[in-house]
């Protein structure tokens, strides 16, 4: 397999590349991003691109890429401006798919990491969304809108390119030790916000299961849309209890306005997360399980693992050493004839 990973410098891009490096069937891994990679990588080739991936078609053809793992979709609207989200998610995906769908393109498989944000969070929602379910209202934030549009492009791509396996994975709230997601950030606060009178039920995915799921989709070749989320739904109050945090109630109406004024204080809770704190969201994960995927964590297991990680960290501090990408050093280890390579391939 010759794999292209988008968003190599993001948490997911870096980690999935690392996992792919350990698989012998994977001959080539090319990673693209606008920034330097944040993880030490052994044999992944890094190419710097602009965020809309204009150069991608050349890379795909030159490296004879057969599988694309598209991890670079922003799913947290507090991380970037609406414009950046649109450029990355919509225009980026569009260009990526244009490159993958070109007449001479060698691409045979596309795996996309999307989010259950596409279902929204609403009082009229079903308790658990199936992959075919429609959301109850229109998108409430730029990030939701951009994900819906990116998925629509993917649908067009799948229709136009029936010879390409397309797997769209929609991940629910992810928790992990090194990962910054809106809910994880809230759980790290001294007191955790909740909306007065609401106790939404949420579903969690452990970060290991995210990587397993991406790898599973990239290597096993099941086309389709899949929800990825641990079994079971937990009320937010119970999540806070497991993590061992007290809660502070936000007013049930005018919550958004109040939080806008709290932004300068460093409290940044994206709009879609406030909806989540009111109405929660559950997804049906049975389809992905039937396709053969086995989870390592249930929802409660993911929260428990997160709580343990946080407790450990509060005592011994950050466990991961800080890595700094040096182009010359990386080039030396990859290409210099002086280096004796263990992963040498003919």
């Amino acid at each position: 397999m010759r794999i292209l990973v988008t968003g190599l410098s993001t948490f997911w891009g870096g980690h999935i590349a690392r996992v792919l490096e350990q698989i012998d069937d994977v001959e080539v891994i090319v990673g693209v991003d606008t920034h330097d990679p944040g993880l030490p990588l052994e044999r992944t080739e890094f190419v710097r691109t602009e965020e809309t991936y204009g150069i991608l078609q050349r890379i795909v053809e030159a490296a004879q890429i057969d599988t694309i793992v598209h991890t670079h979709l922003i799913v947290d609207s507090s991380q970037a401006s609406a414009k950046k989200i649109n450029e990355t998610n919509v225009i980026g995906t569009m260009n990526l798919l244009a490159a993958a769908g070109a007449a001479t393109s060698p691409v045979r498989k596309v795996v996309v990491k999307s989010s259950t944000l596409v279902y929204g969070s609403n009082d009229k929602d079903p308790n658990m969304f199936r992959e075919s379910a429609k959301r109850s209202t229109g998108p409430v934030s730029p990030v939701e809108r951009s994900l819906l549009e990116a998925e629509a492009y993917l649908k067009d791509f799948a229709t136009d390119n029936p010879h390409v396996f397309v797997s769209l994975l929609r991940f629910s709230n992810v928790l992990g030790d090194d990962l910054s997601t809106p809910l994880a950030r809230m759980l790290r606060m001294r007191v955790v916000p909740e909306v007065f009178g609401f106790d939404p039920r949420l579903q969690f995915t452990h970060q290991d299961d995210v990587l397993s799921a991406l790898l599973f989709a990239a290597t096993s070749g099941r086309p389709g849309i899949f929800n990825v989320a641990g079994d079971g739904l937990l009320p937010w109050s119970e999540v806070c209890e497991i993590v061992g945090k007290r809660r502070i109630a936000l007013p049930p109406s005018g919550t958004e306005t109040m939080l806008r004024y709290a932004q300068p204080l460093g409290i940044r809770i994206p709009h879609e997360t406030i909806r989540l704190l009111k109405y929660g969201r559950g997804v049906d994960n049975s389809l992905f399980k039937r396709a053969g995927f086995r989870y390592s964590y249930t929802s409660a297991g993911a929260v428990d693992a997160y709580a343990k990680g946080q407790r450990l960290r509060s005592t011994i501090g950050a466990t991961q050493p800080v890595y700094r990408y040096e182009r010359d050093v990386e080039a030396f280890f990859r290409h210099s004839p002086a280096v004796v390579r263990t992963h040498q391939r003919s």
């Binding site: 199936r130 429609k134 229109g138 819906l148 549009e149 229709t159 397309v166 849309i225 396709a291």
Partner: peptide
């Protein structure tokens, strides 16, 4: 809602089981 903004549905139907 923009015209394109519905979650993709058709893909979900093209799913094989058995691992």
């Amino acid at each position: 809602v923009p015209a394109t903004a519905t979650p993709v549905e058709d893909l979900a139907e093209i799913v094989a089981d058995a691992a």
